[in-house]
């Protein structure tokens, strides 16, 4: 009991109330598909580890939407992730150093933590002209990835761009963009979505810190705990689909009634993700709730395979 008291004291020192903390751990444990008996262990993962696990976060061809999505994390808050839980050694959007000072950090961190750091990649890699369409400090994304990713303990691809190439890889793919796994021929853990829900990313990291291994993946590298079921199977509008009650125009009576969006082009039946359950921004909403069809953003090649977006799937 003494130990537990210290544990919560340590948390309170960090400005985290016991109630908030357990709420987060419970939610995360459920999201990860673990039984509630794991809640205390999930909690322990976040309780000020002696050495925070090092993370090197690379930005390639992307829009920074995935970093922004993680910034919206509320359980835990982003300042806790950055200051108390992880050691984000390199991340261009938040780091104070620029230029040479930033480059020095990248090289030093890769060397210091070789075989120990988690490499998170956001963005696709240009391959046309040996990757000449994307550079940082004179090096191509391709060269940087080839140098850094193989030295990582694991590479987590956050977002559909690093996972599968994303929007810049859509036909005719002017820069020859590819996902990290494809470009390097390595196995990656993929957290696709445009952007993904931060809870799916945090859940993957916790899975590793808690169980010492990465979560079980499907055949396109996605953790089953978040991507194991289709949007359609989890959709609160599913009964309207079964009853043949469809929206056929925005702004219609049927739209007001919250009918099924399948005939408006909804890609829910072909899309695997946790959106209807986890929702976005602290459970505030998700596209179908806002009356918009799912665009299938967590599926490989969705910018070609799922378009035109507003036409019923065949």
């Amino acid at each position: 009991m003494k130990e537990e008291k210290e544990f919560y004291e340590r948390l309170e020192e960090k400005g985290i109330s016991r109630r908030d903390f357990m709420k987060f751990c419970g939610m995360l444990t459920a999201t990860m598909g673990l039984s509630s008996s794991f809640i205390p262990e999930v909690a322990e993962v976040f309780a000020a580890p002696k050495q925070r696990p090092p993370v090197i976060w690379l930005h390639f061809a992307e829009c920074t939407g995935c970093s922004e999505a993680v910034l919206r994390s509320m359980y835990p808050w982003i300042d806790e992730l950055v200051i108390n839980i992880l050691d984000i050694a390199y991340h261009e959007t938040i780091m104070a150093a620029s230029g040479t000072q930033a480059e020095d950090i990248l090289h030093a961190s890769v060397k210091k933590y070789e075989g120990q750091f988690i490499c998170v990649v956001e963005g696709a890699i240009a391959t046309k002209y040996n990757g000449a369409y994307g550079k940082i400090a004179g090096r191509t994304f391709l060269d940087i990835a080839k140098d850094v990713c193989p030295k990582a303990l694991a590479t987590i691809c956050i977002g559909s761009c690093s996972a599968y190439g994303g929007i810049q890889a859509a036909s005719p793919n002017p820069g020859g963009y590819k996902g990290v796994g494809d470009a390097l021929g390595i196995k990656t853990v993929n957290i696709p979505g445009c952007p993904p829900n931060p809870i799916s990313f945090v859940g993957t990291v916790v899975n590793y810190l808690l169980l010492g291994k990465l979560p079980a993946l499907d055949d396109v590298g996605r953790p089953l705990f978040a991507y194991g079921k289709s949007i359609h199977d989890q959709c609160p509008r599913r009964s309207h689909y079964e009853n043949g009650e469809f929206v056929t125009e925005f702004g219609s009576k049927e739209a007001e009634m919250g009918y099924c969006l399948y005939k408006m082009g909804c890609k829910g039946p072909d899309t695997y993700n946790n959106c209807p359950i986890a929702k976005f921004n602290d459970g505030t909403s998700w596209p179908v709730q806002a009356g918009h069809p799912c665009i299938g953003c967590s599926e490989p090649g969705f910018w070609d395979k799922m378009t035109p977006f507003f036409v019923e799937s065949k």
């Binding site: 952007p195 739209a255 007001e256 976005f280 921004n281 909403s285 918009h292």
Partner: peptide, 24 residues
């Protein structure tokens, strides 16, 4: 953004002709 736009980043509640968030 999530209240009337489904999510942030990358909102998903506009349509050519208006907005889709009638139920919000």
């Amino acid at each position: 953004h999530a209240v009337f736009g489904a999510k942030n980043p990358h909102l998903q509640s506009l349509a050519v002709g208006g907005v889709t968030c009638v139920n919000d």
